[in-house]
Amino acid sequence: MGSITLSKVSKSFGDVEVIPPLDLEINDGEFVVFVGPSGCGKSTLLRLIAGLEDLTSGAISIDGADATNASPAKRGLAMVFQSYALYPHMSVRKNINFPLKMAGMDQAEADKRINAAAKVLNLTDYLDRRPGQLSGGQRQRVAIGRAIVREPSAFLFDEPLSNLDAALRVNMRLEICDLHKTLATTMIYVTHDQVEAMTMADKIVVLHDGYIEQVGSPLELYESPVNKFVAGFIGSPKMNFVTGPSAQKRNADSIGIRPEHIDVSSESGEWEGVVGVSEHLGSDTFLHVKLADGGMINVRASGDLKVKYGEKIFMSPQEERIHRFDPQGLTI
């Protein structure tokens, strides 16, 4: 079991309010991702749930029981830190054993769990090594192993992949998703990388300056962002925002159109521009097009499109894919 409810939770450091009162419901077994730019309060929110920081006001309940003032140890949650936070003076086995030892678990039972976790995480051959002798990915797995042996009611991940190189990150992402499917335990995952958020989450919580901008499934956020911030933050490459005649024509202060929803033509279209840099990825081509008024439009075209630097092209947004925003940035 691992449902977590935050009600009117807020946090201030001195006079600075990092998190204004917010409500959030996390259901049992869900994979929830907190995403937002750095400084948006996502890590603080996670630490509030973990019990590593005090709430300034509000309440947190875990599985229906009030946990607002419970110490981290008593909450039954496990956490994987950005730096992995392994105990450098203990072997891998002792690292994984540590939470069990603290819980006073019988050593035979503990060993059974450690071996099972090691098998799942491919750590069996490394149990007697020190963290210092492991690669980044292996350390990450030890940190996860230390978390899973406790059979916590929920896992908390604080940007766990940001210290890994790109290829390993993709691998670990899959492994964590796999783990979630196997264990079916609630996971709360903090990241600033919207790709991680989109690929892993059941439910994404977009945070900005401490406020929850939107909560929803990845596709909901992609297809119907509630405001300009979410629209711009979710999706890669970023959504294009256009003001002026094109927006007025559609009764909006500004409109947004994703690069993949623009049709390119060499003869005619709504916008006319000059091709700047074009990035050929093989499957796709990303075009950075300069408009006459100085603006830029990014376009995602098919991989076989042949355009040259300085060439003039025309672009038209797909009408049904256009997002319209009012002067406050809210979706109309």
């Binding site: 956490m79 830190f81 730096s83």
Partner: peptide, 24 residues
């Protein structure tokens, strides 16, 4: 973070200092 990890792992303050901080 390592001390916080110990706290999350259920270590009391005494155990945190005894088993994690001091050896490190």
């Amino acid at each position: 973070e390592i001390l916080e990890a110990a706290r999350m792992d259920g270590a009391s303050l005494k155990n945190e200092i005894l088993y994690v901080l001091t050896p490190m």
